[in-house]
């Protein structure tokens, strides 16, 4: 295992932390105050406080709640707040869309009365996003594709987490496994990610299951490495030792002391997994190793639309590309913001 490479994820998290720290620093220590600002300062703040017994007793307890602070910190970021709401609306819409009235099934082919297929109709009142080259409703296909891709992304993100955390904990705690897992990690990590994706997709038959499997094969690595490093690092920190000395159970240490440190990264990892899964899907589809074309997915839609880019049918590219971009950008920004917010060091 590479000794010096910090986990990519850690570094992403640390940026957030640094941001917060710097902000705090700036707020508390303004570099140079203008005379007006000096004049505006409340003189009472510079008077000596009198000793008060009751106030002295108040120290030592705060009503700190980890999750509340996390959400408050997150909520303070306007862009992230907006994106989160928009994303939730989008996800909710993709889920309920097929149950709304007047929606068309994504695989249905529409014909004109004379028996010819309604191909490449531009967006209209009837077909909001137009139709594709086989006369299917693009509106329905975009949402169905979003559903498929999000589903894949979710499955991959969850299994990345499950596999990654399990292996990471084993790796960190069971010393006998360390050498072996390090070797496995090296083997997989040494091959470029795209090559693994391609090889697995090729050897297994292309399809949803293959895609999920191949992405899971590469996705857990980062998570496992991070968890292992965290466990090694945090386990022996002074406050944990102190906790242990005071008789706190291992489980409680894990949940109260270790987990908050990791939640930020787990969240970040999950949030970043989703856009990366979607872009991997687009990539695999481009290589011809994607999902069957009759299943709408964002990868398939973008790939189909790409061929139309230079024609007036380029709406077939624009709609799915917009959805991909939106999902990716929002997950990326939300993930980063949440990672910052969930880092207890930022709750000061």
């Amino acid at each position: 295992m590479s000794l010096f490479r910090k986990g990519a994820v850690m570094e992403k998290a640390s940026e957030g932390m640094a941001d917060q720290l710097e902000k705090a620093l700036r707020d508390s220590l303004p570099d140079d105050l203008t005379p007006e600002q000096v004049a505006a300062l409340d003189p009472s703040r510079f008077e000596m406080a009198e000793y008060d017994d009751t106030l002295a007793e108040k120290t030592g307890y705060s009503s700190y709640s980890y999750w509340r602070s996390t959400f408050r910190a997150f909520w303070n970021n306007k862009v992230a707040r907006f994106l989160l709401i928009a994303l939730l609306v989008l996800i909710a819409f993709t889920i309920i869309q097929p149950h709304l009235p007047g929606q068309r099934p994504p695989a249905q082919i529409y014909d004109f009365d004379d028996g010819s297929v309604m191909r490449n109709l531009p967006p209209s009142h009837d077909f909001w996003f137009g139709t594709n080259a086989v006369g299917q409703d693009l509106w329905a296909r975009v949402w169905s594709g979003t559903r498929t891709s999000l589903l894949i992304a979710l499955i991959v993100a969850i299994s990345d987490n499950v596999i990654g955390i399990t292996i990471g904990i084993l790796w960190g705690y069971v010393r006998k496994l360390d050498a072996f897992l390090t070797e496995v990690y090296n083997i997989i990590d040494n091959i470029p990610r795209t090559i693994i994706l391609i090889l697995i997709s090729y050897i297994l038959r292309p399809g949803m299951a293959t895609m999920i499997i191949s992405m899971c094969c590469v996705g857990w690595l980062g998570m496992a490495r991070f968890i292992r490093n965290q466990i090694l690092m945090i386990r022996d920190r002074d406050y944990n030792l102190a906790s242990r000395c005071l008789g706190t159970s291992t489980g409680k240490i894990m949940i109260k002391n270790l987990l908050p440190y990791m939640v930020s990264v787990i969240m970040l990892q999950t949030a970043l997994a989703i856009p990366s899964v979607i872009s991997d899907e687009v990539f695999l589809t481009y290589c011809g190793l994607g999902m069957p074309k009759n299943i709408a997915s964002l990868g398939n839609l973008v790939e189909e639309g790409r061929k139309m880019m230079m024609t007036s049918s380029r709406y077939q590219l624009i709609f799915p590309a917009l959805v991909v971009t939106f999902i990716t950008v929002s997950f990326y920004l939300i993930g980063n913001t949440f990672a910052d917010a969930s880092d207890p060091r930022n709750h000061v």
Partner: peptide, 28 residues
Amino acid sequence: TKGKWPDKLGTGFIVFLQAAPSAVYFLF
């Protein structure tokens, strides 16, 4: 220029490059 407009502009640019499907914007 952290937090000011060059930073925001740059961030937007970077996020866009990473998010938009590259197969599309290369062709573009």
